[in-house]
Amino acid sequence: MASITDKTEDKKAAPVLPVWLRGVRWYHAVVAVLLVIYPLIATGFWTVQIGAQSLILGLIGLSLMLLAGYGGMVSLSQLTVAGLAGYLVAIFGNAEWPAWLMLVGAVSLATVAAVLIGWISARTSGIYTIMITLAISVAFYYLVLQNDPIFNSFNGFSGVRPPEVFGVDWRAPLPFFYLTLGVVGLCYLFVLYLSRTPFGLALQAVRDNPRRMASLGFNVTAHRVAAHGVAGVLAGIGGVLLVWQNGQISPGSVGIGPVIDILILTVLGGLAHPVGPFIGAVIFILMENFAIDLIDRERFNTVIGAVFLVIVLFSPDGVLGLWGKLKSWLARQSARNRVDQW
């Protein structure tokens, strides 16, 4: 007994970090610093078209990662939720709502939509989730395409810009990048935190074995729907940022192409960790912008499709999975070397 007490006393003696700081490593700080000084050394194009765009698409991918990685539900409707928020910002902006009401309204309505989608799709599981959410996103595309009174059919809305708050022009590259970085960073930390909360742990348990969780008294459907709701908030915020960055939104922004793009970049980066979608987004955006130097711009889809195919066939965990494989291979090699030296 005495030894056990001793051990706890030892732990107490060590410097106590708050829970949210325990996972932090030195390279996290390096990445954070690099991201902050990035726009100071990069040109406007690299700041907004590459940097901010990657962060925003990564955020929408993050909402998919939350559902797929932690919840086991691959949803193809995350861009649709984001697109709905984007459309609502444009519509409320045209109606000249005050900025805060516009934002709260857009994100919360998008979240309501996400909860509804979750409620519909959580009744089924596995492949049905993918099919139902795909059907929902294509239906939304046709709705905005055909609907004139609310969604302005195929013209959509243009000239959407962030409101001027605190006298800062948020449309300028630097402020917009920092706005995006701040918001996306908070969302990222929130997902990291969420994955360790009782809810996050229960969600991952539901992913691994829904029947056992149900018999333990957890409400499986409620956890799934709640995950859709949380992911909806993230996607909604991403949608608002996206429409501000592009300055416009039209049915093409929520078509089947961009919907699949979100899936591609999330899987490309890796579904196992929240950082995956951001890595995937950077790769995707770089390819989108620079693949045209190597091949015909028209054939970009063939290239991205082929890259996606290769990743899915050979590394189901995406680039992160490749990294993991490389690390364990290196570890094996060095272990073998050590054995040899013996």
């Binding site: 691959v74 596995g126 492949i127 993918i130 699949i260 899936l263 591609i264 899987v267 054939r299 889809n301 063939t302 991205i304 499709g305 082929a306 996606f308 195919l309 899915v312 066939l313 189901p316």
Partner: peptide
């Protein structure tokens, strides 16, 4: 492996559509 099948066939349909 339903998820992999889905992803692979999505990739194939993207390539096919483009070709």
């Amino acid at each position: 492996q339903e998820l992999r099948q889905t992803l692979v066939t999505i990739a194939l349909s993207i390539i096919l559509a483009d070709v």
